[in-house]
């Protein structure tokens, strides 16, 4: 059973959070328009810069959307609200599913806005390619949804800003959201083990018409499993401490 009223109000809470809007929506959008506006006809790695940078900013914005679930969880834990929820009929699974769902809703808003900006900057893709890119991004976000839950049980609201902002920027940077960092072979191999790399690569895959290589699926799956294990561990530790 999906607790629809609960989900609706949870989404409402998220939309009302100004910090989320600035970091997840406004910041990547402004950055995209500013950077691409000045370089719209150039190519990077054989890809039009307007598309290349679009996927980078989509990765940045959607990652924040997912990780910010962690912020809400941390705040609810500190407020003692998590304990209050645990004595309602809401299942723990449904509680976390709602957080993930909310993260995806926010990611979807970020995607739509940035796609619109991309189109305005001359990005041309066929409908199937838009769909493939979007599908890969949504799959690529799974480990970040779990990471949000994990972080939500580790940080305090005080350290939340730096932890999420810094973590997200680092992941984006390493993943190549702001452009490739290095073309060295060792570096490239290491970076391919980071899930944010494949999130950024979703756009490139869409352009070439080839979905992710098998290693991308493996990286996303392995990270998801590891993070779920860790999240379950910290959740258990958190609730055992009454």
């Amino acid at each position: 059973m999906i607790p629809t009223t609960y989900v609706r109000l949870e989404i409402l809470r998220t939309v009302r959070n100004r910090r989320f809007f600035i970091f997840s929506l406004v910041f990547p959008l402004v950055l995209y328009l500013a950077v691409v506006g000045a370089n719209r006809h150039t190519h990077v790695e054989g890809i039009p810069f307007s598309l290349y940078y679009l996927t980078g900013m989509v990765a940045f914005g959607t990652m924040i959307a997912q990780l910010s679930s962690g912020g809400r969880i941390a705040a609810e834990r500190t407020a003692g609200w998590t304990r209050q929820m645990r004595i309602t009929p809401l299942h723990t699974r449904a509680y976390f599913a709602t957080k993930v769902l909310t993260g995806y809703m926010m990611a979807a808003i970020s995607i739509v806005l940035l796609y619109a900006a991309g189109v305005s900057m001359g990005v041309h893709l066929s409908a199937p390619k838009w769909l493939m890119m979007t599908g890969l991004i949504l799959v690529g976000l799974i480990p970040f949804a779990v990471l949000g839950i994990l972080v939500g049980h580790l940080v305090t609201p005080d350290s939340l800003g730096p932890a999420l902002g810094g973590g997200n920027t680092l992941l984006s940077l390493v993943g190549g959201a702001f452009g490739p960092l290095s073309t060295g072979r060792v570096y490239t191999d290491v970076v391919k083990c980071v899930p944010s790399y494949w999130l950024v690569q979703a756009g490139k895959s869409a352009l070439t018409g080839n979905a992710w290589p098998i290693e991308a699926w493996i990286v996303v799956a392995v990270w998801t499993v590891i993070l779920i294990r860790l999240a379950a561990f910290v959740y258990g530790r958190d609730t055992a401490r009454v």
């Binding site: 009302r16 705040a75 609810e76 003692g80 609200w81 304990r83 209050q84 004595i87």
Partner: peptide
């Protein structure tokens, strides 16, 4: 139903 000893409310509502 219950009211626990400690706890505040969540925001944005």
């Amino acid at each position: 139903g219950g009211m626990l000893q400690t706890g505040t409310l969540i925001g944005q509502l």
